[in-house]
């Protein structure tokens, strides 16, 4: 074997090995969903089921509590993502392009929350939303997290890189700042919006601690809340729990596969160096 051929074979073997070990837990989860109630944790260990049964997947997909949780969370995640992109990109544009009194102060004010640990405000946020009568509504899940310093910062970095010349031409033609934002900046924001939109979507979809604190209404149970309390609520039906976990992970995995190249590039735009 020539050294070059050897190197390529070694690379290929490594690729397969890494892929298998990284994806093993996920594959095992999906496959455990096909196993019977007592088969998931059976000794000796078996990767594949004796018989592929679809009952778990069918049962959980028909379970009204599960489908409702999926639907409610999905709707919430979409609204949350859209709202946070609007709110944060508006502020990002103002900080990137406009001059105004107190800009420095408001800049620090908007970026500082990035450094406040969630726990330091979790308890008092809970008291605030209780006072506002927001408990057990969709609003309590969506609104508190919409404004995000990290997201605003990221989009602003991107806007700073836009050429000023086009904008000045538009200003001379009498366009207002709002028109410039809507007609020049927004149409070109696909890349940062996809990256930040996915981050928002994932944060909402995967949220656990905030929902278990603020939601007790079964009609609004979030998907991770459903899965996290599945064991205490329904006993150890592992096969079904694995089927549910697999289905609950599918939307995020699909999202990643569709927008995969944006994420990889997004890491570069963010300019962490």
């Amino acid at each position: 074997m020539t050294p070059r051929l050897f190197q390529r074979t070694a690379s290929a073997v490594l690729v397969v090995l890494i892929t298998v070990s990284v994806l093993f837990p996920l594959a095992w989860m999906a496959i455990a969903g096909f196993k019977g109630r007592n088969e998931v944790l059976r000794s000796p260990f078996q990767f594949f089921p004796d018989m592929w049964r679809f009952d778990n997947y069918v049962d959980i997909a028909r379970d009204p509590e599960f489908t409702r949780a999926m639907g409610v969370t999905f709707a919430g995640a979409l609204i949350f993502t859209a709202l946070s992109l609007v709110v944060n990109s508006l502020a990002a544009y103002a900080f990137a392009r406009l001059e105004f009194r107190g800009k420095r102060f408001w800049w620090v004010y908007c970026v500082m929350p990035m450094f406040i640990p969630m726990m330091a405000i979790l308890l008092t946020s809970f008291m605030v939303v209780t006072k506002l009568g927001m408990l057990n509504t969709m609003a309590v899940l969506i609104i508190p997290g919409v404004a995000s310093g990290a997201q605003m910062f990221f989009i602003r970095q991107f806007y700073l890189g836009f050429p000023v010349a086009v904008e000045e031409a538009a200003m001379i033609d009498g366009a207002s700042r709002w028109q410039i934002f809507l007609k020049l900046f927004l149409p070109q924001s696909a890349a940062p919006f996809v990256v930040m939109g996915i981050a928002s979507y994932l944060a909402f979809w995967n949220a656990y601690v905030w929902p278990i604190l603020t939601i007790t209404d079964p009609n609004l149970t979030q998907i991770m809340q459903f899965l996290g309390t599945f064991r205490s609520a329904r006993g150890n039906d592992w096969g079904m729990l694995m089927a549910g976990s697999t289905l609950a992970s599918l939307p995020t995995i699909l999202l990643l596969l569709v927008f995969q190249r944006f994420i990889v590039n997004g890491v570069r735009i963010s300019g962490i160096k």
Binding site: I121, G145, A199, W210
Partner: peptide, 11 residues
């Protein structure tokens, strides 16, 4: 507050 800060640009 639920947002992960991991994508946030560094200093």
């Amino acid at each position: 507050m639920a947002l992960t800060p991991t994508l946030a640009p560094g200093p």
